[in-house]
Design a protein around this nucleic acid. Structure first.
Lengths: 181, 181
DNA sequence: GGTCACATGTAAAGTGTTACATGATTCC
DNA sequence: GGAATCATGTAACACTTTACATGTGACC
């Protein structure tokens, strides 16, 4: 039983507690989104596939007249999830357009590079703020591993921040002409 | 003119100098792969699309009896690439299965988590070694921005390394029972 | 009455990986 | 002769994003 990326987040989330598709999306957005995102377009179809495969079980749990399906892990779902959790993780993958542009920009396009660095800084600050906002909530959890993972994100973003500082210096000041006074 | 991710790496590489599909792949593997990868399955079809669109021009340049197509940026290709280089970069995306597993593992599955941390460490060390191996070559380049980007990768991996160390401590030693001596 | 959050879904298009297939050349 | 590297490509599949469509409930 091979799990798609989306399938594993879904099962993982459902092991914490039964949820609807909508709630899974919310949970992903405020926890794993930084290193593992998922959209509605993946979640809803995948939930159906998982139900057909017998790994989750859905049942209607409307709130008022608003329909809603609550999904629960089946015994088989637990097994499959735990098997997946036990397998060695694939190496991380990154897609970082800012670095790509910087890589291609030449010395005579320095201004463009500076603009991009600025954008990257904003994005980095925004991401850091989001994570730090979550931190107190994660700190309150009993398990600790969520907090650990959050710290990974914060560490990486802080390192990026430092690098951005360094990069800006490099691009602002033209390389010193080696003229010690 | 909207460029796919693969299209932009290809054009970017061809701006450095004309190359064959095979050479583009090699160049990607030893420079941008860390933050922007591409496979043959993308490169070859994309080169044809780009040629049909008039952004690159291919011509046969066999080496002996071994066939080979050299692609060059057209004037329009230059324009399109430069337009793309000027647009603000999209925020980075990460897919990190190791963190996902750690996130889902509970306190009673600590051994599995430790195994995964070990795997992640190996992967991290391997990646760092690859980058450090490239560094001297990048240092020799005239432009400097390649070296800058490489430093970004090294910085991020070093930060990850530190975090891995920290995470291992946390998982090995059970949380201190607050008993100051 | 309008906007926002709740809630579920589909369709199409685009992106990407993997495995396969083919053949030449170089090096041991 | 065999393995590794050079070189190009296709086909099948898996994965993802985006836009659209629909309707309820809460709050101002």
């Amino acid at each position: 039983m091979k799990l798609s990326g989306t399938a594993s987040v879904i099962l993982g989330m459902l092991r914490i507690k039964p949820m609807s598709g909508y709630e899974i999306k919310q949970a992903v957005d405020e926890s794993t989104a930084f290193f593992w995102a998922a959209s509605y377009g993946q979640i809803y179809p995948e939930l159906r596939r998982l139900e057909r495969a017998g790994l989750v079980q859905g049942e209607p749990a409307p709130r008022g007249a608003r329909r809603r399906n609550l999904y629960t892990l089946t015994a088989e779902g637990h097994e499959v999830l735990e098997a997946w959790l036990g397998e060695p993780p694939a190496p991380p993958e990154l897609r970082f357009e800012g670095l790509l542009k910087l890589f291609f920009l030449r010395a005579d396009e320095r201004e463009v590079a500076q603009r991009h660095l600025h954008t990257m800084k904003d994005q980095n600050v925004a991401a850091l703020e989001r994570l730090r906002e979550i931190e107190p909530r994660a700190r309150a959890l009993p398990d600790g591993s969520q907090l650990l993972v959050l710290r990974a994100g914060i560490t990486a973003l802080e390192a990026t921040e430092q690098w951005l500082e360094h990069a800006e210096d490099r691009l602002t000041k033209p390389p010193p002409q080696r003229k010690p006074r």
